[in-house]
Amino acid sequence: MARKPKKHAYNKSVRTLIANDNPKSPISEQFRTIRTNLQFAQVDGELETMIITSASPSEGKSITAANVAVVYAQQGKKVLLVDADLRKPTVHYTFRTGNTHGLSNYLVGSQPLRELAHMSSVDKLDIMSSGPIPPNPSELLGSKKMIEFIEEAKKLYDLVIFDTPPVLAVADSQVLANHVDGVLLVVRSKQTEKEAAMKAKEQLVQTKANVLGAVLNDQEVKNSNYYYYYGQ
């Protein structure tokens, strides 16, 4: 069973889980639409594991991953959100917990999954932070121990979501992509260049990843009084 998280104080700006804090907002409805579209995307089977990533940094992939995890948990799924960004982790900031232990501890064989997963403030949603930043992230994510982690997590949870580094920055997402059911790519309106988005998709496809689709972040909704905006 996942442990209760310890409370920690951080100087980082507070990241709002809008799908949990304001579930009736238009933005929360957009996250539920993403959930519905992902469910339709897996016509041949249940979506059990997926990566949420971006082409480049600061495009909103981490906060998208957190809110997608929330809306799946709200649907009644038992969800584990894993910070697989072993270079610039953020999940512990979003959920205001510690990062002294996490995925990297499991991958070096020092602690079991059940001890590293923490209950979040959202019912049915557990989180696992990155743990200490290792010197060899790509090697750890591509190891047999990582495959063991995925298989073990699938037995304990209905859905496992991995927040991974940007595709064009490092190879980590590509290393992990062909071990999960699908990949969701986040791009930011007026920031992500079309060429970068296409190149990120091509690199994922080259690794035989199942690209489920893309999320356009920061897009103004015309003919309305609100903006579809939610920054990382």
Rank of each mutant, 00 (worst) to 15 (best):
M1K: 08
K6A: 13
H8P: 00
A9N: 08
Y10Q: 07
N11H: 09
V14K: 12
R15A: 08
A19I: 02
A19D: 03
A19Y: 02
N20G: 01
D21T: 15
P23K: 09
P23D: 03
I27Y: 02
S28K: 07
R32E: 07
I34C: 06
R35F: 06
R35W: 06
N37D: 13
L38Q: 11
F40A: 13
E46A: 09
L47D: 04
L47M: 11
I51H: 02
I52N: 04
S54F: 06
A65W: 10
N67I: 02
A69I: 03
V70I: 14
G76I: 09
K78T: 14
V79D: 01
L80Y: 06
L80D: 11
L81Q: 07
L81G: 03
D85W: 03
D85V: 10
L86S: 06
K88Y: 10
H92E: 05
R96W: 02
G98W: 03
N99Q: 14
H101W: 01
H101C: 02
H101M: 09
G102V: 11
L103S: 04
G109A: 05
L116F: 13
L116C: 14
H118Q: 15
H118N: 15
H118K: 15
M119E: 13
M119G: 01
S120T: 15
S121Y: 11
V122S: 08
D123C: 05
S129N: 09
S130N: 08
I133A: 10
P135N: 02
N136H: 08
S138I: 00
L141C: 02
I147F: 08
E148P: 01
E152K: 14
K154E: 12
K154I: 05
L156Q: 11
D158G: 07
L159C: 13
L159T: 05
D163W: 01
T164L: 10
P166C: 09
S173F: 01
S173T: 14
A177G: 06
D181Q: 09
L184C: 07
V187L: 13
K190Q: 07
K190T: 08
K190R: 11
T192D: 07
E193F: 01
E195T: 06
K199A: 13
Q203W: 08
L204I: 06
V205H: 06
A209M: 05
N210R: 15
L212M: 13
A214M: 13
L216V: 14
D218Y: 12
V221G: 03
V221Y: 06
K222W: 01
N223D: 11
N223S: 14
S224T: 15
N225W: 11
N225L: 15
Y226C: 05
Y227D: 10
Y228F: 11
Q232F: 02
Q232V: 00
